[in-house]
Design a protein around this nucleic acid. Structure first.
Lengths: 343, 343
DNA sequence: AATAATAATACAAGCGTTTGTATTATTATA
DNA sequence: TATAATAATACAAACGCTTGTATTATTATT
């Protein structure tokens, strides 16, 4: 029984009350140029007629959509969802909505999505570039056209005009590995993610420099850089890694929670005792680590806060006067090591 | 170095080529009314000038935004994210974008979000009503105004004019519980979710009717309806439940994956052997069950497909002629029991 | 009561497109 | 070559709102 009905618009209210459209518009805005009694009449009539403002017309007229475009590499990574939650919360409190898209780890899709954002649907963009994104010209292009932008996670320093939100990946992983070393572990395996991602490079750097500080030689055999772009393949990669090891590690430091869980799972299958024989540390701390038996020690990354901060920076940009040049802001958030049963 | 630059519009191209705006517009559409040579000139100039169409203006003019509004009760439930992925994939392939919002399990927020959708930003809506949603007048209101709508998960049959996508919750849980019974289990615990949700009511019904069929009396002590709206509290509720049991169950059927994992975790802590002493079945099957040791047997719900189907139905509605009445469609998707180590 | 000041409202252009109709240019027909 | 048919383009209204300026109504001032 659904018929499309013609929507009530300002004109309808104006006609009914025999006043001008402009007055109706201003009345609904509670503009003092319209006298109280008229305002009340307008509100009452608008209510009665079921008036609902047309956001598109407003946007065209005002040049603002109050929508923030968010571009993440994948949906099935809780980290990104958590960041989105943070963005959403801050944005909502500041009268913005968010439009989330996934680049599905593809440079091509990243560009396509940005183009669709550029068509005027969003007032600004928050994104985490994919690992495939070597050339950031498309990003610089957008910022130089005046599109407000904030980058998080897989930061690209070369992008000028965009703000950056990050954690200190090097220090975070250094601390985690140092923690393991201080517990007496010497054969510490490293499981990282896609090599092209700065975050994973940095975490590897932190790992190496911790080993270095304590004069532990780097054993390449104990190092794995996972290349899986999808949950289902990570599983196998990690299984294979452990199967082919000739040295048994006494600790594993992994660059995501999921790698940590998969590592524990594999170790448990081979009857290793955690943490007695092998200690494990994950990275992220998005809830999963607490469910597993044993619970997983993690580098706690403030994902939600990361989103909030990104939204805050973007909205700040949106409120800057248009003719002023934007000063790049870089925010580093704190991480901490949350100890649980796996260490 | 970011300055807002004035965007190139059709008028600029028209002026440069000394032709009319209408011709430029049609040329870019490859409308046969403009001759090839002109089209080429226009494309070339548009490219040179860096023209980017204004989506908002297009939408105002066409009355379509090509955006689908998606409203889910929470972000931190993988099921909803998976549905969103499905919607996104189908929508994207049909030239639609999706705008996801969360009602955060609140009827009030649900209404607010729908109002903002109603402002003309979206062409149609896909939603899963919250458990707080007793009165569906706001939904019927929207459909009767002609807003295309598809409901999934927590279906409300009273909503007319909206299509429904669902699974057979009663049968799915009946099958799962029957499976346990056939394995010789007699003291089967039930862990459900928020009682007000139809899906959880139905799963409870399935549980009871399986017991009934095999003449197993319902032991209320073995039944828990979790009320947690957030991950962090589910943990405690389930722990408490098991702590206070006087009967030890020999199986547990839970209404989400997470409940299943938490149940296993709690059981493992009390040194119970899974599946020897207690078998566990979860509901959903969104990847987590495979990571845990032991892996979790699950009712596999086709979440991604659910999203795809919802998007398909919505887009079908969007393409219906406006003056025709919409015939309500209800789609039931198949589930299956995926056996793993926990049973 | 006439004029100035101000309050309230109306008019109209503009936001960047689309699209139906009118107009002009080109080709075909006799 | 004049006219009809058609191709190509231009004009202008429309989408629903905002907002600067002009106009009218009301109140204050002398």
């Amino acid at each position: 029984m659904v018929f499309k009905k013609r929507r009530v618009k300002l004109e309808d209210i104006a006609r009914k009350l025999n006043i001008s459209i402009a007055t109706v518009s201003r009345a609904l805005d509670k503009n003092p140029r319209v006298k109280k009694s008229t305002q009340e009449k307008v509100f009452k009539t608008a209510e009665e007629m079921g008036y609902m403002p047309n956001q598109i017309a407003k946007s065209l007229s005002s040049g603002k959509t109050n929508i923030i475009g968010v571009l993440i590499p994948r949906y099935d990574e809780p980290f990104f969802i958590e960041v989105c939650r943070g963005i959403d919360q801050y944005a909502r409190n500041h009268n913005y909505k968010i439009l989330i898209s996934s680049s599905r780890n593809s440079y091509q899709f990243e560009k396509e999505n940005l183009i669709s954002f550029e068509r005027g649907l969003v007032d600004g963009i928050i994104l985490s570039p994919t690992h495939e994104t070597e050339n950031v010209a498309h990003l610089n292009d957008l910022t130089s056209k005046g599109m407000p932008m904030v980058l998080f996670d897989n930061i690209r320093e070369e992008v000028s005009g965009a703000d950056h939100v990050m954690i200190d990946d090097i220090k975070s992983s250094f601390d985690a590995v140092e923690f393991l070393i201080k517990k007496g572990r010497k054969k510490i395996a490293f499981i990282g993610g896609i090599k092209q991602k700065k975050v994973f490079q940095d975490r590897f750097t932190g790992y190496k420099s911790a080993l270095n500080k304590y004069k532990i030689p780097l054993n390449e055999e104990l190092v794995l850089h996972c290349n899986s772009l999808d949950r289902e393949f990570e599983d196998r990669e990690i299984l294979d890694f452990f199967k082919h090891l000739t040295t048994t590690p006494d600790a594993v430091f992994t660059c995501t929670d999921n790698y940590g869980l998969l590592a524990m799972k594999t170790l448990l299958k081979t009857e290793k005792k955690i943490p007695e024989e092998v200690a494990v540390i994950g990275f992220g701390d998005l809830g999963l680590g607490e469910v597993f038996v044993p619970t997983l020690t993690c580098v706690s990354q403030p994902s939600f806060e990361m989103g909030q901060k990104a939204a805050e920076l973007l909205i700040k940009q949106l409120n800057e006067p248009e003719d002023i040049l934007h000063k790049k802001t870089v925010v580093k958030l704190e991480t901490k090591l949350t100890q649980r049963e796996s260490t």
